[in-house]
């Protein structure tokens, strides 16, 4: 029981002090989990991250579930995950409330216009990072263009595109195996 409380508090702390999630969370996880609590080694954390990336869902959440389940089984996995999302829930609700109150204010309106233009620039920077990691050859370029056309012009749901991608990945692997035989 004590272990679960400790897990919850540690992950709540990680959730409170990391901005942006994903990789920006890694240093905080390393400090808390590896150095302070000694719940896992650096190598294990890197492995959890790698698997967290190739499994559905938010990477930070996946990593929390992994570490929690290693320390205290299934309840540990669930509690660590709840810990990491609790600060978000509280903070976002407070901010959403405040923002709703001031949405009509002219200064807030101007600030939000500036923020929107900035978010566009930030997203392009993130896309640049994603492109560098995802485009390995001409087939990848083709897939990228197909995904853009399918969502932007044909309005196909991203859900179907993910399902299509998973199926195609399995077929691709089977074809590669055939070739090597």
């Amino acid at each position: 029981m004590n272990k679960c409380l400790e897990l919850f508090l540690t992950f709540a702390k990680i959730g409170t002090f990391t901005f942006g999630g994903g990789y920006s969370m890694l240093p905080m996880i390393q400090r808390e989990i590896v150095e302070h609590k000694k719940w896992a080694t650096n190598e294990e954390i890197v492995n959890y991250y790698a698997i967290g990336q190739c499994t559905p869902g938010v990477i930070a959440v996946n990593t929390a579930t992994f570490i929690g389940s290693k320390i205290a089984g299934i309840p540990g996995g669930i509690i660590a995950t709840l810990g990491v999302v609790t600060p978000s829930i509280v903070i976002i609700m407070i901010i959403a409330n405040i923002l709703n109150l001031f949405l009509e204010n002219i200064f807030i309106e101007k600030a939000l216009s500036g923020i929107r233009a900035t978010v566009c620039a930030l997203m392009i920077y993130s896309i640049w990072g994603m492109l560098k990691k995802s485009i390995k050859d001409i087939l990848c370029v083709g897939l990228l263009i197909c995904a853009i056309i399918a969502t932007l012009f044909l309005k196909i749901s991203p859900v179907y595109i993910s399902i299509f991608g998973i199926s195609l990945g399995v077929i691709y692997c089977l074809c590669k195996k055939e070739k090597t035989k």
């Binding site: 990848c140 897939l143 969502t151 991203p158 993910s162 399995v170 692997c173 590669k176």
Partner: peptide, 22 residues
């Protein structure tokens, strides 16, 4: 091998989705 192949296909698709959203 399957996981690697799926990600090889899925990554450019996911990037395309984010581009459309942007």
């Amino acid at each position: 091998k399957y996981v690697q192949s799926i990600f090889y296909i899925l990554r450019p698709l996911a990037t395309g989705l984010v581009i459309s959203a942007t």
